[in-house]
Each structure stands twice: as C-alpha cells, then as structure tokens.
Design a protein around this nucleic acid. Structure first.
Lengths: 346, 346
DNA sequence: GTTAGCACTCAATCAAGTCGAGTGCTAACA
DNA sequence: TGTTAGCACTCGACTTGATTGAGTGCTAAC
C-alpha cells in the first residue's frame, strides 16, 4: 500500500507532533507548525482520507487526530530514520557499563531492594564511607590468558573485585610478584592515600606495563567513590504510586526529582548515621519539601564501627512498628554480612 | 503530658485504623470496630479533647479524625510495640542477602538501568541462558584466613565469582589441589550437568570438607538460576508515572503487578531473542493487557551466539527512532563487554 | 484541486443542587 | 459527674445541566 507524497508528509507530521506533545493533532496545527503551504481545510481532507485508510484515529468527533497502531507500524517500517546517538548520550551509556560493583556495593543494592519490597516505601541506603579504611592486601589472580581479577582487601573487608585485562604473556609468577609488591607498598594505608601513591610511585617498577598500572589505579579509584555520585542507593521508587498525597502526577514527579538530586537525602542520612535508630515525622524534617513525609532510619556497622545508615521515606501515615522491626532485622543482617567480610584477628 | 487510659486507647484505635485504611476515622467506627463499650457520642467527646490537645486533626468539619504528627510522635515514643518479624518475612529478607551477583548479572542490571534512564520507558533485560555453557575452569583463591573466592569460568566468560567461607587451616596448596580436581572433573561439561555431578561424585575425595563442597555446589547452582526467579531484570518502573494511560492509580498498580509477575514478559523476551531487532506495536502484542503498549527489543551475544534479549516497554506513543538507536548502541556495548569476558582461542 | 465559510459535535470546564457521613451541642438519664 | 440519645448543622463527594471552544465535515465558490 503506497501513499501519495503529500499524505506521507502529513502522516509524518502528525506522528512527530503527537510523539512530541501527546495531544491529538488538529489540521490547523499541521498547516501552521509544520510549514505546509496548504490551508487547514485541505489538510482536513487529506486527514479524512488517512483516517479512512486506517492510519489515523479520532478519539472523538471534535478532537484532532492521533496516529493509529497501523501508522506507527508504517512509520517504523518505512519512514523512520534511525539517527546515530550524539556523543553525550553515547558517553552516558558507556559510563554506566564502565564501573563494576564491589561486594559491598552489591550488599547495599540488595538492602535497598529488600527494604522497599518489605515496607512498600521508598528506601535509601547510605554507602559506607570507605575513604579511611586501611588496605590489608592486594591480590591479582590470573583467570584466563588475558584476564585477571584484582582483589583489594581492607579492614572493612573486600571492597573491590574487578576483572582487568592484562597484556598477553604475563606469567602467574609475575602477577604474584606484582601482588606482593602492591601489598608491601600499600598495606596499612588508606584507600585515599593509596590512590595517590600509586600514580606517582609505582611506575618505575613496572614501567613496561603502564596500561596495567592504569587499570589498577582506576579500580582503586572507583572503590573509593563508586559511580562518582552521591553515595545514596534508592530503592522502590515505583512505590510512589501508593502514596496518596501524590495522586496528582505533577506532585509525584516533583518529589521524584527531589529524590533523584539526592543532596538532601545525603545530608539526612549522614546525620542519621549518628543514631542507632531514628524516626522523623512530618514537620520534624528540616527540609520543607518533606513536611508531610516521615523518615525512619537505622545504621549498620563494619568492623564494629558505625559506617553508614539506611532507611525508608514515605507518607506520615506508615506502619511505624512494622517498619522499625524490619529495619532492626535488616540492621542485624547487614552487620553480620559485613562482619563476614572483615577478618577476625587484625 | 499524660493522657487518661481511655484517651490513650482511643488515640491508639484512631492511629491503628487510619494506618490500616487511610481514611479519616469517625467516632462510630471506633465504637463499633474496636470493641469499645461506649457510644459514639462519648467517643466524640473524647476525640474533641484529643483534638484540642493537638493529637488529632480534622481535614474538614464533617469528616472523621486523622492522627496529627504529634500523635505519631507520641505513638512512636510511648505506645508502639515493636513486634518480632514472623518467619516468612525474616526468611524473605535473608534470602535477598544470600545470593550474590555474578559479573554477568551485574552487567544485566546496568543495562536495565541505562535503558530506562535514557529512554524514560520501563526496561526489561532477559538474563543469558547459561544452562548450556561449557565450563572451562574452576579456581578457588584464598583471600584471607577463612575466606576464598570461587571463580567459575565458562565459554561464555566468567559467570560466577562468589565469596565462600572455608574451614580454618586450609592451605593455599590444598585449595589449588581442589581447584585442579574440580577443573579436571568438570571442564567441558555444561553448568547444568556439573551441578548434578558434583553432588554425587565429589564427596569421596574431600569428604572431610563437606561444608566446603556444599558451598561450591550452591555457588554453581545460583549461577545457573540466579535468584531462582524468572530471568528478567526490570528497570525504571517508576517511569510509569509518565505513562498518560495510567493516570488512574488503579490501572497503574494493575500494570505494575503484570510486570512483576514476569511470566508474560519472560515469554515475550524469549521469543524476541530470535530477532536482532523487533518492534511490536499495540495490538500486535499477543497479550491482551498490552494492547495499548509497544515493545521494542534487541539482542546481545556472548561468544558469537545470541543468548538473550533486552528492550523497553511503554505506551504506543514513544519515540521509536530514538529508542531503536539507543537499543542499537546498547547492543553493541553489551556485545563488546560480554565478549571481553569470553576468551579468544577456545 | 484548493479554499473560505459555516453549522455541527463533543470533551472539558464550571455552577448549582443533592446526598450523606460525621460532627457539636443540648437535654435527659444513671 | 459521666454517659447517651437526639437533632440540627457542615462540608466534601457526587450528580446534573449549561457553557465554551477546538476541531471537524460539508458545501459552494474560486
């Protein structure tokens, strides 16, 4: 089935406009906004034809037209030009795939997940502040010809286990040598310091493998500041549709954007990590935006030290007793899991 | 500030009822549902007092009462009993923390995340079907006194890297021996078969360390069927609030529950993994529930073989051209990342 | 084939009216 | 003095009807 040139361009205009705006498109709009040299009446005639052919639908008599499923199909099959992504978007996608999660990171994600699913609220987890943890050892293990796993073990446990590519022909012995070298040089230092040291001090010893060194440095870097974002993991943001105060889509979006900026949450959670439990109700929240929300938090420990907090946020009408008991259980679970990471005895 | 016994129990009844139902609570409700031996009029008097004291609010003159923030605070501080979690809930929480993600799992999560954030739709990623991948080698590496990392390498790359606890006093040499033993015994087999073999065949050799064997079996188990759930990762479910068709909260919840059951999605994605790209619009979807949704999918390869698919789902009104180009880019990224996992040369 | 003109349609919006859950108050009762 | 029945009152939720205006289809002229 072939359409005339003109019908085609009108159809395309309708589809484009509707995809952009979401409102039914009228004949006048087409003739004005899309630069046709035709009057709205003419467009109307053509649109009537397109409707008869099944490409356009009319929600009701006096509304504009919207593309039918058939129109989308036609558009996808025959009219659509697939643009290349611009650099910014491509970069964004790439950066997502570039960082891996450490064991601890994973536990944080799991915690966020389980909290939101059991409480039906939005959950928040503050990542542990690892900058100051001390390195115990660094090991590289060859797993295939050109791949190795780098393990960074600190007094807060295993914080990084990432796959790195190694130059061909490196022996297991050589790797072990490097591992020992790294451990000697860095053990006892904080992750933060280690990062600096590595860049300046290591190159001489393994100059011939500077790519490898770069990979190692990068791995340690991302273990200090994973993702480079504020250290909050959110979970269950879809639960917002259960919040009665946000029946209006407008408000809900607004709140979501508050959550996503994360600054406010970060400050809150940071403060909360002082107290084993905290319940903040409505106006007690410092932030204006949260005056009809409640926040319940608890803390987790790594190596006996309270290193971070987690909790939920939701409407003041929440089942506090249940939530507190869940938080308590999760706190225990986290402490025991995280202490598993930490070795006893030093 | 102390309240009379009766006021207290009325306040508690209001809070409990309101937390349950979400509707303002009337005096009649209290006197009936909560088993008071008082008439509604008496309750009304008490409620009027409680309102004056600031514990109850009235949305408007002729409505029931809702607890004020002050009431919640009082409740949390003085009245609330924190129950112990029942076994089912505790179990659910524990099971979340029990499984770790393999490298590949992580990549899947990242893909879901980046897709939903760039397209503003709900994203779906089908986990690779690994049952049939062949084991290349198995290695255990001691990282601290009582911890080791178990690495399972297949022809689809590294599929599992989990921390396991080992009995005290096991030497690195002994571990290397076990690694070699496992590799000899299992290399060339599929993960599925390996699992069965392990349970029956290995115990004799390392009988004294049956806990260790159990851990290893479990690790391989979860790499075959991670999480034990249908193999779909969802992302960006909060984007549902941007779907105009789901302005009504009722419908939105309904759709979310369709998503969460996953059966339908699983079948769809499984089918989609045959085609490099697919666009399914509106009624073209087999499922009734999705007749006003469109699904766009693409596939990823591991070791040159198309092992899974991913895509987005949203209202038929979506920017197909942009979405297809994003999917294309993600497909390329995934292929190159996943082929990094796979070693060249066998 | 194109366009101006005009009657027509129908969702969206708003005002007025009705309904009913729940209240506060009063007076009687234990 | 505390409790209760009775009743007028309030006000949001819902219904109904009128109004508006964007956009159409059709006709007749160009």
């Amino acid at each position: 089935m072939d359409l005339s040139e003109r019908k085609l361009s009108i159809l395309k205009a309708v589809i484009d406009d509707y995809i952009m705006t979401g409102f039914p498109v009228g004949s006048r709009t087409i003739s004005k906004k899309h630069g046709f040299e035709l009057s709205s009446a003419t467009i109307r005639n053509e649109m009537a034809d397109l409707e008869e052919l099944g490409f356009l639908d009319q929600p009701h008599t006096s509304a504009g037209r919207i593309p039918s499923h058939k129109a989308y199909r036609y558009y996808v099959d025959r009219m659509m030009k697939v643009a290349r992504l611009n650099a910014a978007e491509a970069g964004k996608i790439r950066s997502y795939f570039e960082d891996r999660m450490s064991e601890i990171e994973q536990v944080m994600e799991k915690a966020a997940q389980v909290l939101s699913e059991t409480t039906h609220q939005i959950s928040m987890v503050l990542r542990p502040q690892l900058k100051q943890s001390l390195i115990k050892s660094i090991q590289m293990v060859k797993i295939t010809e050109r791949k190795a796993i780098l393990l960074v073990v600190t007094n807060a446990g295993l914080v990084k286990d990432s796959v790195i590519v190694v130059p061909e022909g490196i022996s297991s012995d050589y790797m072990e040598m490097i591992s020992r070298l790294l451990t000697d040089k860095l053990s006892g230092k904080t992750l933060e310091d280690a990062e600096k040291d590595l860049i300046t001090g290591l190159n001489e010893n393994v100059r011939e493998n500077s790519d490898l060194v770069d990979d190692i440095v990068e791995a340690i870097e991302t273990s200090v500041e994973p993702h480079g974002r504020k250290g909050i993991v959110l979970g269950g943001t879809q639960n917002i549709i259960d919040f009665p105060a946000y029946m209006s889509v407008e408000k809900a979006k607004n709140f979501i954007s508050v959550l996503e900026s994360k600054d406010m949450l970060y400050d809150m959670m940071k403060k909360a990590s002082q107290l084993e439990f905290s319940v903040t109700i409505g106006h007690e929240n410092e932030a204006e935006e949260l005056s009809d929300m409640s926040v319940v938090t608890a803390t987790y420990k790594i190596g006996g030290k309270s290193l971070g907090s987690f909790g939920v946020i939701g409407p003041t009408r929440m089942d506090y007793s249940k939530i507190v008991s869940i938080l308590g259980y999760v706190s225990n679970s986290l402490n025991s899991i995280l202490s598993d990471f930490t070795e006893i005895g030093d």
